[in-house]
Design a protein around this nucleic acid. Structure first.
Lengths: 198, 198
DNA sequence: GGGGCGCTAGTCAAACATGAATAGTTAGTT
DNA sequence: AACTAACTATTCATGTTTGACTAGCGCCCC
């Protein structure tokens, strides 16, 4: 699942310096375990991988009592760059076969400016329109492939129908963003760090 | 990805006895490589696993010239049972976070009766309605969890919007199935085996 | 007749995901 | 004061996915 890296980078970025358990707990409160298949192992594995690749840096290991030691991480400059890259990819491009990518991207949209998010979403609407046209043409083209079974045409229609659902969510959100809802990078109430309960 | 087993079982079931390459080629013609992440390795691995678990049986190995040997498979009775189970699960239950499951299920819907498919789809519409209610309540409940970030409410709305898209596809299909479109188990033109090009 | 291209058929190491299990800690309850 | 339920913090064996790679065969074209 390609949304894992973005989710982990983004969650570390909010709370850094932070240890794995807190990252996981935050993502659980977003229900990312369901929509992004985020098991405990995935979180810790991603942390290790990202640290090995130089996107995260382990900044210490604390032990409280006789509990398991916990390693804390923060983003490296490369990690910050990668985060912004993945975030922009997630928001600007449709991913018709992986719903978790937009969910992950939207989770950190506030890290960009309101203008960029609106622009990205408008671009998304155009892509969805283009995709409708591509589907039509692909379905028409099936006539030239007589051995392709008829359910394939419905696959195209189903993918497009789901995208239309996504489009109505996007349109609703664009309107609300233009109305000033929520807070984004550079604005007074913009979140930059998460709010820790404890 | 849980749709892999269903796809492989179903594809073997169509062409049995059949070797891996033909299964893969057929699934590629459905573009399952894109919507179900079906790489060559996944196909062969699934075949091995299903054979190990007794759902498939390797019925021979032929060698033509000095080419790689090819193993042919067919479903065991357990494999047929598992196929029908996975197929019914895919069609009767919504899977809000994995779009490939319905795509895989629909690919083999013709293996059930027209009546059952219509009933399953009607049940699906009810589940989507119920899910709308659950989303509403979940969003309302967020007021009691002040530290949950605001994007979580949009996650619920996005999942629901995509399901509404799916619902419009399902409604369209129910109407066409009631009109007698396509052919299902027990009907004159029902597909039972695939049509091989060569 | 030989050179290149695309098809056939599958393998494999590395990467990634799964989720049960572990083992100590705290808070509440009878 | 003992019990237990839930939380903290992570590991690890197992399983699945990825996609580049191999290597022979057939066909077409010059």
């Amino acid at each position: 699942m390609s949304s894992t890296r973005l989710l982990i980078l983004g969650a570390v970025r909010i709370f850094q310096p932070v240890h794995g358990y807190l990252v996981r707990r935050e993502l659980l409160s977003w229900h990312a375990d369901r929509w992004a298949h985020l098991n405990p192992g995935s979180v810790y594995n991603a942390l290790h991988t990202l640290a090995r690749d130089g996107l995260l840096q382990a900044v210490g290991t604390e032990t409280a009592g006789r509990r398991p030691a916990r390693t804390t991480y923060r983003l490296t400059p490369d990690g910050e760059t990668e985060f912004r890259l993945l975030l922009r990819e997630a928001l600007w491009n449709i991913s018709p076969h992986d719903p978790s990518i937009l969910m992950a991207g939207w989770s950190f949209a506030w890290a960009l400016s309101r203008e960029e998010v609106i622009e990205a979403f408008e671009h998304r609407l155009e892509q969805i329109q283009a995709s409708a046209r591509v589907s039509e043409l692909a379905i028409a083209d099936l006539a030239n492939h007589p051995f392709t079974p008829p359910h394939v045409a419905e696959h195209w229609r189903l993918v497009q129908a789901r995208l239309e659902g996504e489009a109505s969510w996007v349109r609703n959100l664009i309107a609300r963003l233009q109305d000033g809802e929520l807070a984004f990078a550079g604005e007074p109430d913009a979140p930059s760090r998460g709010t820790l309960v404890d």
